[in-house]
């Protein structure tokens, strides 16, 4: 009964991503890599990017974590592949606003399937789980920009 509320958070798509995450393997050709830790639970996630001409050529992640962090990482990799770094930065900020419960213009177009994680906004304790992979991608891109 009470768990019906739980299915607002754990939608089927989210469960599927967590069970069978996409791009969940090392990326040998990566040129940028960021490891981030969720300080509340100790989960560690590493996001690897291959960036060429300001474009995400490939992306993958490794690490374990809860359903939300895994699904979010999986969706993030799907969504940012092929995008420019500027686009991805915008997506990450939009994603972060979304899970904080803020209005995000054009959310579905901006975030694609990852927009389903909007439900995390109702579970404030889980926001950090959802944003971990996105933050890592953002930091990896910032690092790449500092190289130039």
């Amino acid at each position: 009964m009470a768990l019906s509320k739980l299915s607002n958070l754990y939608r089927q798509v989210i469960m599927d991503h967590a069970k069978h995450p996409h791009n969940n393997q090392p990326l040998p050709q990566a040129d940028h890599e960021i490891e981030l830790r969720n300080p509340t639970c100790g989960d560690v996630l590493t996001v690897q990017l291959k960036i060429q001409d300001d474009k995400i050529i490939d992306v993958a992640y490794t690490g374990t974590g809860c359903t939300i962090s895994q699904a979010s990482a999986s969706m993030m990799t799907d969504q940012i592949k092929g995008k420019t770094t500027a686009e991805v930065e915008k997506m990450v900020l939009g994603f972060s606003d979304m899970v904080l419960g803020k209005e995000v213009p054009d959310m579905e177009r901006l975030l694609g399937e990852a927009a389903i994680l909007q439900s995390v906004a109702q579970f404030p304790a889980r926001i950090k789980c959802a944003t971990l992979a996105w933050k890592a991608a953002y930091q990896a891109i910032e690092e790449s920009e500092n190289d130039d």
Binding site: L6, T40, C41, G42, I68, F123, A125
Partner: peptide, 25 residues
Amino acid sequence: IHPHDLASALDMDGVAVRAGHHCAQ
């Protein structure tokens, strides 16, 4: 089941437990 997911589920039942490293990494 990751402890975070478990704690969220228990919370929906009003049951408050801790999930994490308990400051003991």
